[in-house]
Computed example of a mutant assay.
Amino acid sequence: MKLTLDLHDIYNRGGDIDRALRAVIADAVAKKAPLVEIIPGKGSGALKKRVLRFLDQPEIKSQYHRVEKDSKNFGRVFVHFRWK
Rank of each mutant, 00 (worst) to 15 (best):
L5G: 00
V79L: 05
I17N: 08
E68P: 00
A20W: 13
K32G: 02
H80P: 04
I60R: 08
D27S: 12
D9I: 08
D56L: 00
T4H: 05
I25D: 00
D27V: 06
A20Q: 10
D9A: 14
G43Y: 04
V77Y: 00
D18N: 10
D18F: 07
R82M: 11
G15A: 04
T4P: 06
V67F: 09
A28Q: 03
Q63S: 07
K69N: 14
L7I: 03
L52Q: 12
R22V: 01
G15L: 06
D27T: 15
E37C: 11
K84G: 13
G75H: 05
V79N: 03
G14I: 09
K32T: 07
R13P: 07
K48W: 02
F74Q: 11
P40A: 03
F54L: 00
V79P: 00
D6H: 03
M1H: 10
P58Q: 06
K61C: 04
K48D: 08
Q63I: 00
D27C: 06
E68L: 07
R53W: 11
R66L: 09
K32Q: 14
A33I: 03
I38T: 04
R76I: 13
E37P: 04
A30C: 07
G45F: 05
V79Q: 03
V24E: 08
V29S: 05
A33F: 08
K48I: 07
V67D: 09
K2E: 15
I17S: 04
E68G: 02
P34W: 07
K2T: 13
N73P: 03
K42L: 05
G15R: 05
S44D: 14
G14K: 14
R19K: 13
K31P: 09
F78E: 06
V51Y: 05
R76A: 10
W83S: 02
T4Y: 04
P58Y: 06
K61D: 09
R19I: 03
K49D: 15
P40C: 08
L47Q: 09
K84H: 13
L21Y: 09
I38P: 01
A30E: 15
E37N: 06
P34E: 13
G45M: 04
V36Q: 03
I38G: 00
A23S: 11
G14T: 13
L3G: 03
